[in-house]
Write a protein that binds this DNA or RNA. Structure first.
Lengths: 188, 188
DNA sequence: AAATCCGGAATGAACGTTCATTCCATTATT
DNA sequence: AATAATGGAATGAACGTTCATTCCGGATTT
């Protein structure tokens, strides 16, 4: 029961931050959602800003783990690309609140330095993977950041559409978009 | 000087909303940035929520105008696609605050119905244009929304990178990314 | 032409409310 | 019984908003 509260507060905060943003969410709101007293939150977190930063880093770590887990280190680059694409999609679908929260928070004024560098470290993982493909001559002559914009940007927007019902996720659709992204980045 | 104040307040609000979000921006902050008294804001706007909605609709209208202006109605689809791509990029570069504000605000809880439908109307313009290309058999067999995710999502992420200096905008780079996007959506 | 008056624009102090945070009596655990 | 954890009332700061007052350019009166 004890350690559960820490987790309950984080989950409640994640849900509310994803819905209403950091400043639009009050500490009493988080307390009610987590079914604890407002004061209890301060037994687990120094203040609201420490809470949001801890949540952010935890979400980024989980996100990074999702990508790294089962990474086909010894298969060819096409498989690695597919892996990253589908894991990005998987995370955005299985943890839509976390995904939305992360993306809404990346550039926020209340993120501390550690949170920012944690996220950069995660992005570096994607960038290194893309650089490898570039060196192998499989990708176009564009900076790795451009590929990130294409792949991550596409998936980010896609997840918005899945969430608000503009688009229905389906295996066939995802396969088609994965192919589109690959065609967008692969050398002609 | 009179009508200027209305505009000064909107610009100040846009800057602050883009940086800190709606709830993270206080009315006195807007007043200071606009160099007016806090009470003056209420001579021009009924309340903070009306202000953010008026700002949103104005930004969307300007955004839509940027896309529609000079639209090559009588050229072929490839040119129209290029036009939309470059106008999206242009707006995100010339009005980075407005672009960021719009994207951060699209799904916000404080947007009223008119604001939401104004934005939908704008998206419909892009969707109709894509459907035309689909009917002509020039695009892949994917829903128009998927193309929007690819093109708009890419540009959205790109503009983030241009803003924070992760990536330098250059004609050659943009031409490469436009080509990538076209290859992602065009029939094989 | 100078002095006075006028009305709306502008202001910022003040209001009631709500916020993040603290405090403490009560409850649960050891 | 002692200690730790808890919830929610209490607190002061800060919020959005209001309003009594000031300001100021143009009309009116002298």
């Amino acid at each position: 029961m004890a350690e559960n509260k820490h987790e309950n507060i984080l989950r409640a905060a994640q849900k509310l931050f994803a819905e209403r943003g950091y400043d639009g969410t009050t500490v009493p709101m988080i307390a009610e959602e987590a079914k604890v007293g407002a004061g209890t939150i301060y037994r687990y977190f120094e203040n609201k800003q420490k809470l949001v930063n801890e949540l952010f880093r935890g979400s980024v770590a989980q996100f990074a783990a999702t990508l790294r887990d089962g990474f086909p280190e010894h298969k060819d680059f096409r498989d690695k690309f597919r892996h990253v694409f589908y894991r990005l999609v998987r995370y955005s679908r299985e943890q839509p609140e976390a995904f939305r929260f992360i993306n809404a928070t990346v550039n926020a004024y209340f993120l501390d330095e550690q949170s920012k560098s944690d996220f950069e470290g995660f992005m570096d993982f994607i960038e290194r993977h893309l650089d490898e493909g570039k060196e192998a001559g499989l990708l176009r002559d564009l900076p790795a950041q451009a590929f990130i914009a294409i792949v991550y940007g596409t998936i980010f927007h896609l997840s918005r559409m899945f969430e608000d019902g503009t688009l229905e996720p389906a295996d066939e659709l995802l396969a088609g978009i994965e192919k589109s992204c690959w065609d967008a980045v692969s050398a002609v």
